[in-house]
């Protein structure tokens, strides 16, 4: 694979040990070839990047097109005419602000609570020997493989019996822990060095102190990564809020935006403008934690 050949050029700041510039490579290869290879690599990557972004770019431009321009032939990427009407109208057509708040509360609290519970469970599974660990682990793996659609109807029935349908707690509570999260963090915790906590244990620290004071701070990148995972998953989830809430007021953004996808009339401009506004927090979240992100996953292979 030619790609590995163009390894370190020393141009950028190396971000990991694997990239550290190697003197021997520099000595052996003529400078021109390396420069050409770097350029080729840059161009290819940017082209791939643009291609990957195409639907999102289209979405952005479409949000600024008048509806008649969107549905006209031949299609263009760049708007023939710019308008902000969709961004204004979306607030009138659906209770957008309310949906935004709901979605923040839903995705935000699910993320935070789930991180807490997932990590507690993962700590027990990775660090505390106990009888029945194998059984719990199998259960978690089994649940990881369970399609959400399987339990949707019985779960709805149950929450309905509890009077929790159509409420935010009803949306949040079943999501307060997550098999993937437990699995992910267990793998991460297993890879952490044990000497720090052994020392603490010898000093008589409680398990809670070790978990909260040593393991959690060490796991910050993994927690942020999983946080992004939980946040985007719940922020974007459509079926769950759609089925759980019968009124748009207790629903979330994706379910609200689905209102623009009529059978006869899809309002593309409104849908795209609304989706764009709805995407911002997730992208912001990602950009904020981007640095920790790769590090967060770095040590989380399967052991």
């Amino acid at each position: 694979m030619a790609i590995t050949a163009t390894r370190p050029t020393g141009a950028g700041k190396p971000t990991g040990p694997g990239e550290a510039s190697t003197a021997s490579a520099r000595r052996r290869r003529p400078v021109n070839t390396r420069r050409a290879a770097t350029w080729l690599l840059a161009i290819t990557s940017i082209a791939i990047g643009l291609l990957m972004l195409l639907p999102i770019i289209w979405m952005v431009f479409t949000a600024f097109k008048p509806e008649s321009d969107i549905v006209s032939a031949p299609p263009t990427l760049w708007p023939r005419e710019l308008t902000l009407e969709h961004f204004v109208e979306v607030w009138d057509r659906i209770p957008f602000a309310r949906l935004y708040v709901n979605t923040i509360v839903f995705a935000g609290s699910v993320t935070i609570i789930s991180l807490l519970f997932d990590s507690m469970a993962a700590y027990a599974l990775a660090r505390l020997p106990f009888k029945g660990r194998a059984v719990v682990m199998v259960l978690i793996l089994l649940l990881l493989m369970l399609p959400f659609q399987v339990t949707l109807i019985p779960l709805y029935d149950m929450l309905n019996g509890l009077g929790l349908t159509n409420t935010l707690p009803g949306l949040i509570i079943p999501r307060m822990t997550n098999a993937f999260g437990i699995f992910f963090l267990t793998q991460f915790f297993l890879s952490l060095p044990k000497d720090l906590e052994e020392a603490a244990r010898v000093d008589g620290a409680s398990e809670w102190r070790i978990y909260w004071g040593i393991i959690m701070p060490l796991s910050r990148p993994a927690l942020l990564t999983l946080g992004l995972f939980h946040f985007q998953y719940n922020w974007n989830d459509l079926l769950w809020p759609l089925v759980m809430s019968s009124s748009v007021e207790t629903s979330t953004l994706p379910a609200g935006l689905a209102l623009f996808m009529g059978q006869h009339v899809v309002e593309y401009g409104l849908l795209m403008a609304g989706s764009l506004l709805a995407m911002l927090p997730v992208i912001l979240f990602f950009l904020l934690i981007q640095r920790s992100f790769v590090a967060g996953i770095a040590t989380t292979g399967l052991k």
Binding site: G12, A258, F286
Partner: peptide, 26 residues
């Protein structure tokens, strides 16, 4: 590819990752 150092790498990484965090339904 993106483990190499070159200009535009950050863009490409973000661009390739971005689809993962947008709503597939939309």
């Amino acid at each position: 590819m993106l483990n190499q150092a070159f200009h535009g790498r950050a863009f490409a990484r973000t661009a390739i990752f971005l689809p993962f965090i947008v709503s597939l339904g939309i």
